[in-house]
């Protein structure tokens, strides 16, 4: 089967998708990165290999914070940032979209679209308050499964007000409210509202949010957050069916367009990547005061690539 592959290596999850030659979703995988992106990618490819015996990959795109590593590992045709990838995926399925809200594991972004083009965007800066990892951690602390988070929050009739500007202080505030005797569902709903408030004032910062509004990323699964957005924006929010893998879908679409429009053959190194042994070793270069950290990727003791240097002294030895 002819397919194009999209890989999104994020801080929390590594997602792989297969699209067919009509850009229809064939398969999606949502795997935990667990601090080891190489392992996660190999695992994903292994699963795809097992499920689809006659896979013919004609284009590969990577995105996410681990996009460069992923592209070296699998041989990508295109390496794109998350913002472009998310916008590409959204516009493929919702051409009338004007705003994309995206909340992932450690970052959150808003993308403003007019006439099918991105005209503005913003990302959270130094703080990950209100992203997936923080919600995960709070769910864990309160002993509730993350997939029940939204459901429980929505039971609340009287949300508690939580100070959500900073993740550390939001947790202190939650503990404080807990000790005061507030019910768990009230605290959870209060947290949802606080995070949405924080998103709108610190990420969106007064940007014009027009419908159709799409909510993407792993956090879109949380109905509590979704509801809080709808209440504060007084507008319906659409959550795409594959909201959790939209980055990977976007990467696949961009790779598809890139390869097809240029009539190129793919750089894909093949499914064997799943069965190779990869090792990463890093060294610190002492050549100058920049003290760059050089990362070296080995495949069965053979040096595959090096990167991380500013001057090109190391990376130029082996072309990446």
């Amino acid at each position: 089967m002819q397919c194009c592959l999209g890989i999104d290596v994020g801080s929390v999850s590594t997602n792989l998708v297969l699209l067919d030659d009509k850009k229809r979703l064939v398969k999606k995988l949502y795997l935990s990165t667990a601090g080891n992106p190489i392992k996660a990618i190999k695992k994903g490819l292994g699963i795809l290999q097992q499920e689809f015996k006659d896979l013919d990959i004609f284009a590969v795109g990577t995105t996410g914070s681990g996009r460069h590593l992923a592209s070296i590992l699998v041989g990508a045709d295109i390496v794109k940032n998350e913002i472009t990838a998310h916008a590409a995926a959204a516009l493929e399925y919702y051409p009338q979209a004007q705003t994309i809200l995206e909340i992932g594991g450690q970052d959150s972004k808003i993308i403003v679209i007019r006439n099918k083009t991105v005209v503005d965007f913003a990302m959270n800066t130094v703080c990950a308050a209100g992203t997936g990892s923080f919600l995960d951690r709070q769910a864990q602390r309160l002993g509730i499964p993350i997939d029940k988070f939204g459901e429980i929050a929505l039971k609340s009739k009287n949300p508690t007000r939580i100070a959500g500007r900073c993740a550390v202080f939001a947790e202190s505030d939650m503990i404080h409210k807990q000790q005061m005797g507030h019910a768990t569902e009230d605290i959870l709903r209060g947290l949802c509202e606080a995070l949405v408030r924080n998103f709108l004032s610190n990420v969106a910062k007064g940007k014009e949010i027009r419908p159709l509004i799409l909510f993407q990323g792993g956090v879109a699964a949380n109905t509590g957050i979704r509801k809080a957005f709808e209440e504060q924006l007084q507008c319906k929010i659409h959550v795409p069916e594959n909201h959790d893998v939209m980055g990977a879908v976007g990467a696949a679409i961009l790779a598809f367009n890139h390869v097809v429009s240029r009539q190129k053959t793919t750089n894909f190194l093949g499914m064997d990547v799943a069965f190779q042994n990869y090792k990463v070793k890093s060294i610190e270069c002492n050549g100058c005061p920049n003290a760059c950290e050089i990362i070296q990727l080995f495949s069965d003791e053979k040096l595959m690539a090096r990167w991380g240097d500013r001057c090109g002294k190391w990376s130029s030895i082996i072309a990446v």
């Binding site: 940032n81 998350e82 913002i83 472009t84 991105v118 990302m123």
Partner: peptide, 13 residues
């Protein structure tokens, strides 16, 4: 990383 992502997205745009 975040800096680079913003630059890339800006130029893509």
């Amino acid at each position: 990383t975040g800096f680079r992502t913003r630059l890339e997205a800006f130029i893509d745009m």
